[in-house]
Design a protein around this nucleic acid. Sequence first.
RNA 1: CGGGCUAUAGCGCAGUCUGGUAGCGCGUUCGUCUGGGGGACGAGAGGUCGUAGGUUCGAACCCUACUAGCCCGACCA
Length: 445
Amino acid sequence: MRMSRYFLPILKENPADAQIVSHRLMLRAGMIKQAASGIYSWLPMGFKVLRKLENIVHEEQVRAGHHPMLMPTLQSADLWRESGRYDDYGKEMLRITDRHGRDMLYGPTNEELITDIFRGAVNSYKDLPKTLYHIQWKFRDEVRPRFGVMRGREFLMKDGYNFDIDKPAAMHAYNRHLVSYLRTYERMGLQAIPMRADSGPIGGDDTHEFLVLADTGESEVFYDSNILDLTLGDRAVDYDDWDQCAGIMQEWTTPYARTDETHDDAKFMEVPEARRKVSRGIEVGQIFYFGTKYSESMNAKVVNSEGKQVPVHMGSHGIGVSRLIGAIIETSHDDNGIIWPEGVTPFGVGIINLKQGDDEADAACEALYKSATALGLDPIYDDRKERAGGKFATMDLIGIPWRITVGPRGLKNGVVELTSRKTGVSEEMPPEQALERLTEIYANV
RNA sequence: CGGGCUAUAGCGCAGUCUGGUAGCGCGUUCGUCUGGGGGACGAGAGGUCGUAGGUUCGAACCCUACUAGCCCGACCA
């Protein structure tokens, strides 16, 4: 992308309404614009990152054997009356009346809809297990939206639902989700810790929340620092292997890690003092096993191998996709702006032409831009007639992890400069070599 | 939902107390110089002062109502 043609309305000054760093940087980097309280338009660069996160979530869900689909944002109140949640959910649910006077709602979640879809189509244990999910906009009419996309009213969320014949099978689904979520967050450059949590209005027995450590997090968290050393890395996972998934589940849930809601001080004190950590965390996902809560109230039953009607065992699992952007920025930024992890960056490399209008510099940048594009590096080329300082500041603000700086001084020696946004370390090398290095870096992302 | 605050140019703000026809910085447009970390000088463009009503010869400013947004708390992914 040529910056001169892109829509990137960056702000030099801090917007007055933005309290936390991710909100401030998203506004300054021209990623979002507020449309109403807690509701945002996603401008091209913000949208690009959002789509990248969405893709990672999809890839990892499909890899785990789950089926993508799409349910509507608007739902009929009827199903919610059937489950009993129409009255229980409270004012957080945005209620709408259509022209015929029918009660509708903008979905805050989709348990009712998915159960309705499932019960009409599946009747036998032979059709189980199934896990369906979608990534869709939700609306919760928060009393007090704040912190930009971290706590908006409209938000993009992946929510998935598993249907299993009994509890052991449903627990495998639970474990499988935990593993797929760990992998998802790792690919995004995030360390998200599964913590025993409170089930809240969704209900259920078993639930873990995934928390990203950050000072601005909404929850207080208590954990054994040993958990920070765990990584999935590139180990091969067979999602059909119950024992392997249970083993990974064990591995991650053995060290103490809880939010304040479920914190047990006596147990926490058993952790050696040096490893006992108290911090704050941003919740970026949650998994639940809730047994037959919805299948019973909504009559989602199958015939088991003995010919008897039994309610299916269900679980639901969510990832706050739009809020993840906030979480990533909270954990990855400096005074100059965002620092995108390579896995989610809107552009692979930023090319800065220090002397726009200089024939040699222009030609070198053009060539570099074309090669980088052909290599799939998805470059953003700052070809504006700006001073060098302004170009550096913009590139730092929008957080592109790698920068190639092209100027007449280096070109005399046939070199450009490759700079890491994260470390600030620069190295001079011929343009082809810089592209090779970047190709290698992104091949491993 | 309780308590507090704000609304003036794209963004950040002053002007309101003490009423007299709207200003600063950034951005933006044009020109000249400059050219490796938000440069300098000069000349421009851009505002129903949130909305409606009231007081007044005259309202951004005083009064009333409404709307929107923000902060603290309770609540939440």
